[in-house]
Design a protein around this nucleic acid. Sequence first.
DNA 1: CTCTATGCAAAAACTTTGCAGGGAT
DNA 2: ATCCCTGCAAAGTTTTTGCATAGAG
Lengths: 123, 123
Amino acid sequence: MDLEKLISDKNLKLTNARKEILKILIESTKPLSYEDVKDDISMDKATFYRNIIKFEENGLISTFESNDKKRYYEIQESNHSHFICTKCSNIECLHEDIKVKIKNHKVETIIIKGICSNCINGN
Amino acid sequence: MDLEKLISDKNLKLTNARKEILKILIESTKPLSYEDVKDDISMDKATFYRNIIKFEENGLISTFESNDKKRYYEIQESNHSHFICTKCSNIECLHEDIKVKIKNHKVETIIIKGICSNCINGN
DNA sequence: CTCTATGCAAAAACTTTGCAGGGAT
DNA sequence: ATCCCTGCAAAGTTTTTGCATAGAG
């Protein structure tokens, strides 16, 4: 996937900050929060969050909120569902596809909450 | 539903704060945030949040996080799913039941995010 | 050259904690 | 009488904003 093309196709200016953020999200196998990436990026947090908003507006990433008060970000592409454990707050990507239709609504993301197998087996 | 029994069955002390919170949640047709209830309750916010945590621990309520940075609370009972609009942040309860099974996981809640019919039709 | 992006610091929004006094059982 | 609950104020966490400067096209 061409990082720079992704950005410029949306008529966004091609900056280092944007390339850094997208690169990390593209290379990650799971959704990431600001906290997850803060040591790996060189920009200020204000820049990070402002760019996240731009990416969202342009459909480059998708986001969701977890148990732990944090927002998580991932590349909009692999439009899979997520499982959030209400005990340990771990997030799993569900690659089996789960389809839900709701009349007159556009479904974007499905988040399933519950207890993960680790926690079921007493951590 | 017997408010007082719900509380004392969990060996929680029967206080006014607890009765107030549960009563509002029981009577509501939709999940509520602290902001939604703050004008209708007489306790301090610290008490509200501490009791919410107790109720969660005891399985009296279920909670989820929405787009708007707020946590929403509802009586654990009508274990239905929710639709959160990513544009207007409105929350709808989905009463049609949506069943999802995931191996080795205990599914508790399903949250579907997308665009609601209002927003599809240009607000 | 122009307009958008960035860094820094300060603020905002929501939730949690410490502590001393009050209340349920 | 004992412990748990409460209010108040202060602090914590995550995200947002204002403003002056830097940088992309």
